Each structure stands twice: as structure tokens, then as C-alpha cells.
Amino acid sequence: MALALSVLEKLQHQPNSTLSTICFIIITILCVLIKFTRSNKKINNLPPSPPKLPLIGNLHQLGTLPHQSLKALSDKYDPLLLLQLGQTQALVVSSADIVEEIVKTHDVAFSNRANTKAAKIFFYQCKEIGFAPYGEEWRKKRKLCVNELLNTNRVKSFQPIRKNEVSMMINSLHEACAKGSSFETSDDGRKSIAEVVRKIQFSKLGVGDLFPSLDWVDVLTGFMSRIKIIYAELDAFLEEVIEEHKRKKKNCDDNNKDFVDVLLQLQERDMPEFELTKDIMKALLLV
């Protein structure tokens, strides 16, 4: 490093020429790379990482089916991998034993999930419990779901509804297969939530998720527009579901209540823990 700096000083005092300029640029780049390499070596106990390319890191090793690519990398290197995806790092865990240790011993350290652009939009700025940041409000929402929505008695009470919905779905699939058509719409002609969910599942990461400094690219490519269109469809569906339950609330007995009915009741109760707004209700329904 000291030798490179002395060469730089000598070049700076020489008359301007193309050769000296090129040498100056090359040595500057080398100095930066040496400093970067040395700083990385100071970080100890990092998981193994496959060979990386400049700028993109390990992105070139993820194919069209990322889960299969990650499985192949884990088999080749280690069940605990550190990948460089653009300007972000990702820890890949492919061992059940390591996952168990993480959720039992280091659960707080690994409790937060990466808030991608799509997650922020689809989950109402991450107001549910899947992508919400770990904290007091997250614990209150989880407690609400466990005590009010997913307790044993409540789950048992939903059995007739689940049975009826599964039966309707099987009948619809049977009719669709007999007609040679696809299962896209519900019986009343409304757009099926399955179609919207499928669009959400196949929503890719934006450039800004991998390269925060290039966040503006997602606007130019139309990525943000496509995400917002899908969100509008999802929000309209959830809005319709909630309003439909409000209209039928008077004729709904305790044996026929579902998650939406329970959330509407809790909203009327004016809970002291947190404000159960309509957006938070929609976000919790997505869980």
C-alpha cells in the first residue's frame, strides 16, 4: 500500500500525459481493491461463500428456479451460505438442525425479514406479522392472532366453513376440467383471489432491492407500476370481502363466523393494544 502511494505521488508531479493518467487510474483502483480486501479479512467467523463476480456478486448463480439453485449451492459448499446479491447480503440456511438452533437460541437476531418493495406494497407497509419489524406492536398483533383467531376452539368452529370451501373448490375444479377451461373466476363472476395471489407469488425482486443505489431503475422499467396494479386488484378484493361481511353481520351467528367477522368484532371493541384500522385488518387477513 505504501509503495502504491509513493508511485502515485511521483506520477502526480510528472507532466500530464496519457500514459501517466492511465497509470494513475490503474494504481488508484488497485489501492481501493487492496484496502477492500484487507478490510474484509478482518471480519471473522463468516459462513462460506461461493466465488463472486464484481458488482453482481452471486446473482449469476441463481437460475430461473432460485430454490433449486440454492439447493445445489448448499450441496456443493455448505448448508450455511453467505451470498452476495448485488449490494445486499443473504444468509441461506438449508439445514433443519441449524434452523432449529436459530429459532430457539437466536430468534430475536433473526426475527426481522427483508422488506422488499413488493412486500411493502402488498402487505400495507408491512403492517401484518409476517414482515412487520420485531417489537412491541408485532408481539401484540401476534398475540391477537394466537388468542382470537387461531386458538383451538376458534379453529374447530371454522371446520364447517373449511369443509364447505374445500367442497366448493373441488366442484369448481371438476366443472372446469369437464369443460376444458381454467379455474379463474368464482361462481358469481368476480375475479378469483387465486389469480391475484398467483401474481403476487411470481412478483420478482426489483433492481432497487438488490442495488439500493439504482432504486430509480424500477420506475423506468415499469416494475413499480406492475406491482401497484396487482396491489390495486388485491386491495379491491379485500375491500369487497370486508364490506360484504359488514352487510351480512346482522344475520351471522356465532357458528358461521370466520376470520373477517372476528376482526370486525375486535375493531368495534376499540382495543387498547393498537388501533385496528382497515389497512391493518387487510394485512392480517393476508397472513
Rank of each mutant, 00 (worst) to 15 (best):
L62N: 02
I29E: 11
G63T: 04
V32K: 04
L65T: 10
K52A: 15
I34V: 06
N58F: 14
N44F: 02
L59Y: 07
L55P: 01
N40L: 15
K41P: 05
I56F: 00
G57I: 12
Q68C: 10
K41M: 15
P51W: 15
N40S: 08
T28M: 10
I43A: 11
P50Q: 00
P50F: 05
P54R: 04
L55M: 07
C31H: 01
L46P: 04
S39V: 14
K52R: 14
C31A: 05
K42H: 15
S39G: 09
L33H: 03
S39E: 13
K42D: 07
N40V: 04
P50R: 00
T64I: 11
L33P: 06
K52F: 06
P51I: 09
L59M: 12
P66I: 03
P50C: 08
L59K: 00
I43G: 08
L46N: 10
T64N: 15
L55H: 11
L33M: 11
K35G: 09
P66D: 00
K41N: 15
T37A: 12
H67D: 12
N58Q: 03
I29S: 05
I56C: 00
L65P: 04
K35P: 01
S49R: 13
P48H: 02
S49L: 09
P48Q: 00
Q61I: 03
P51K: 06
I56S: 03
N45M: 05
I29C: 07
P51A: 12
Q68H: 14
L59D: 02
I29R: 01
L46G: 10
I34S: 05
Q68I: 11
Q68V: 12
L46S: 04
L65I: 03
L30F: 04
H60K: 09
P48I: 01
C31E: 00
L59T: 01
K35C: 09
L55I: 13
K35F: 09
I56E: 02
L59C: 09
G63N: 08
G63W: 01
G57C: 08
L65R: 13
G57V: 09
T64C: 10
Q61T: 08
L62F: 05
R38I: 13
P54A: 04
P50L: 12
R38A: 13
L33E: 07
F36Y: 07
K42V: 03
I34R: 02
K42N: 13
